[in-house]
Design a protein around this nucleic acid. Structure first.
Lengths: 92, 92
DNA sequence: TAAAAATACTCCATAGGTATTTTAT
DNA sequence: ATAAAATACCTATGGAGTATTTTTA
């Protein structure tokens, strides 16, 4: 479970679609698909039910995302506080 | 800045040495050395002053670690809550 | 002079891409 | 027929290791 996977899940949740999330994140849909599946396998839960158009968040997914958003928010606060405003890119 | 790098920094802080931290983390000292240097480069701060025997934490390092511990604690809480108790290993 | 960290490589696992197929309407 | 996700495959990056050098108390 990486911060990046958490960010991916949050963005998919917010956009309601893997492909829309991909546009926001500048990541292809298959890459998101694999990243989220890997996370679901690791945790042993299903976060999203994949539908023909978009997705439905499971109950476990809702609960996960609630906590994940808080972790991500804190992570971002830490990062923003210390990030170098020079050239090096944000690596998760 | 990954959760793994955060964990590495916390363990180095707690043990006072890269090599001791390596034993705890089951990671070699050179791997820790590079991981922490990469993080310091990314953030543009020095976290540890490397000494002949062990390390000294800088002021920026102290401040970073204070916040980092909180992020890590929350991350761990999330992970413990949802982790599969089956076979798949913890990936940061 | 011994310990701890840095440096220099090598290797491999995996994150991400492209192309394509599947699925459900 | 279309739009979205899954699958298959390939590639390249970087995370981790081993071996070695550097540093300074």
């Amino acid at each position: 479970m990486t911060i990046q996977q958490i960010k991916y899940v949050i963005t998919i949740y917010e956009t309601g679609q893997f492909s829309k999330a991909g546009e926001k994140l500048y990541v292809t849909q298959p890459s998101l698909s694999k990243a989220v599946r890997d996370l679901e396998d690791e945790l042993g839960i299903t976060i999203f039910e994949r539908m023909n158009k978009g997705i439905i968040v499971t109950d476990a997914g809702e609960e996960f995302i609630t906590h994940a958003r808080e972790v991500y928010r804190q992570y971002e606060t830490l990062y923003q506080k210390f990030r170098d405003h020079g050239s090096i890119k944000h690596k998760f």
